[in-house]
Design a protein around this nucleic acid. Structure first.
Lengths: 166, 166
DNA sequence: GCGATATGTGTTATATTATTACATATCGAA
DNA sequence: TTCGATATGTAATAATATAACACATATCGC
């Protein structure tokens, strides 16, 4: 079922977009059913747009995508849907970009550790428990009680770094 | 000279603000002199306001502070000064708050790892090389070439966690 | 010093991101 | 079916950030 999932944190450039979007929507729907959450058409639509981009997308870009029919949407519509999707782990906010991205592993508990390529703007999700644990441990040493970690790493993905010295 | 520096990442509540602001300004001035950078009155003023707050401060709050005389300042004035201060490591931007904070250790190379207390809004700076190295290593394994790390940890500082179960 | 060039600052306007406040609609349970 | 909670529509505005251009000041070669 997850056969097209990438081996590394980054999606393979040639992977099957359509399938991974469908998977993400299905997974969200199922999780919502299980947890008694309302996966409304609006929320589904926003999640679909986010996944469609397959890279960080701003709230107002989402609004633009929603405007393609005859009806216009207003910011709160999108922000509320995003709040829901972020709260329940279907979407992550990339703080350093003020943008949103679909979560590749919405199942378990995870902190969201992102590798952001400055060239192609693609984002890989690391979600390494060892990193999370180390940070929690070091924070605790400083007397700090962790509730949430924001980890965003800028740099170049393999492909873009490769192209650089071509 | 650094005798009043806190033992942990967090400044002690009773520490000497005035002295630590003065220290920070002196250190910035000296670094700029050494590196041939122009520590102009404007930049000094902005850095002083940032340190004065001694917690994350937004660009427009800085603007307000500058408006206390008879002359008003415009956003680019502050943002340009902040750009300079951030670029040279005197100030960090806290991405998850869209705010800025004085850097406690502007000397060496460091990534900026922040512990942000959700109750008192104080921020501790961790700057643990072990964390930075682990992240770089894991990223490399994913074929990612790191240029910058953003690490912001939300939670409760020792004092606020203590007060919570009082 | 003198002029050319780069760097810094002032100012106006505007772009981008996000929220408040309140009205209406829909859902789900008693 | 009606009540309360949750979700959505809509208008206005707040908060954050940048573009573009004019002017001032510093720095460096001469």
């Amino acid at each position: 079922m997850a056969a097209h999932k990438p081996a590394t944190a980054f999606p393979a450039p040639e992977h099957d977009h359509t399938a991974c979007i469908a998977d993400a929507l299905d997974a969200a729907e199922q999780t919502c059913r299980q947890d008694g959450l309302r996966f409304t058409p609006l929320r589904r639509r926003v999640l679909e747009i986010v996944w469609n981009r397959h890279a960080p997308i701003g709230a107002y870009d989402i609004l633009d995508e929603m405007r393609d029919g005859n009806r216009a949407a207003a910011p709160p519509t999108v922000y509320r849907a995003l709040d829901f999707l972020v709260e329940h782990g279907f979407v992550h906010k990339i703080e350093s970009l003020n943008a949103f991205i679909g979560c590749g592993k919405p199942d378990g508990d995870h902190v969201g550790q992102f590798l952001i390529c400055g060239a192609c703007r693609q984002v890989g999700e690391l979600d390494d428990p060892e990193i999370a644990r180390l940070i929690a441990k070091k924070a605790k040493t400083a007397g700090f009680n962790v509730s949430h970690q924001t980890i965003e790493v800028m740099g170049l993905c393999r492909d873009c770094a490769g192209n650089a010295h071509a």
